[in-house]
Design a protein around this nucleic acid. Structure first.
Lengths: 156, 156
DNA sequence: CTCATATACGTAGGCGCCTACATATATGTC
DNA sequence: GACATATATGTAGGCGCCTACGTATATGAG
């Protein structure tokens, strides 16, 4: 007969499931605060708050997601009139995203909500005895040698 | 000015990113093995290997994903002629999924590939100093009190 | 036997990421 | 100045999950 594999060891699925749980809870939280907010906006808006205007490419690197995903988020934010794109003065390829007036107002509105989420995350991290450090380790281990390389080695 | 929040503490995003990294690597690995395989099939096929025929609802509970997601995977597996659904003898609502002949053959073909992925996962888990245990802790902490509840408390 | 409630499963539409590809611009070499 | 290569960004289509809703069947109380 065939061997079954321990689902609990399916790390990828567990990461995905926990991520979905957290996203769903954050969404419910936004909903109870009566704010129209797309979760993927947070990363971009947060980066613009911290660093001022940034390009799609810069945001892609800072957020460690593909430039396509950033571009889609930019589009959505522009449609909601929260940010605008301005061409770079010297490089014709680059557009820099910056807040509109209503974007700045939304960020002001979101501050206590984001602070509550941040504090809740810190509490969770403490109770889980530093899940962030564990994710750092996983990140480092996969950077050192990918699952693909490791699995390929096991087949030789 | 507005406060920026530490992206590194955005636990949900980090979980998602690591999950995507692992999924992408697994997909590349399947591609190099010249097998046409959808990643979401693994969980369902693996459960059927371990437990014999199971219903959508049972799989949903075992895999801890929604019954809709299981139903979509069932549809895809049926279209690939790897499983078939049979009505339950006593409960007209229930259909049980079971392997077809080519499904059983695919599982046989996949065994060394899945074993390689499993061994690579165990190696990663060891080097990351028990990421599985850390995910267990996060699971328990969120079960005890959700992000939603914690964030709601912070706003009071 | 009726009816309220619960459960199983399927479809529609959505979310947040991705790869592949295309177009425009920049850079560096010859 | 020409040309090869690199970079920035946008669109198309896809993946794997989700909620909401609808339909069919089961169960238990009265």
């Amino acid at each position: 007969m065939f061997q079954g594999f321990d689902d609990e060891a399916a790390i990828g699925k567990r990461l995905r499931r926990l991520s979905d749980l957290i996203d769903q809870d954050a969404k419910r939280f936004y909903d109870t605060q009566d704010v129209l907010f797309e979760q993927r906006w947070f990363g971009v808006l947060n980066q613009l708050v911290m660093h001022g205007p940034m390009s799609v490419s810069e945001l892609s690197k800072a957020l460690r997601i593909s430039h396509v995903s950033v571009s889609e988020t930019r589009k959505s934010l522009e449609q909601a009139k929260l940010i605008t794109s301005k061409p770079d003065k010297t490089d014709g390829r680059v557009k820099r995203l910056t807040f509109t007036k209503s974007g700045a107002r939304l960020v002001e509105t979101m501050q206590p909500i984001w602070l509550a989420l941040e504090e809740a995350s810190q509490e969770i991290n403490r109770e889980a005895r530093n899940i962030v450090a564990a994710l750092d380790r996983l990140d480092a281990v996969l950077t050192k040698k990918s699952l693909f390389e490791r699995a390929s080695d096991k087949l030789k």
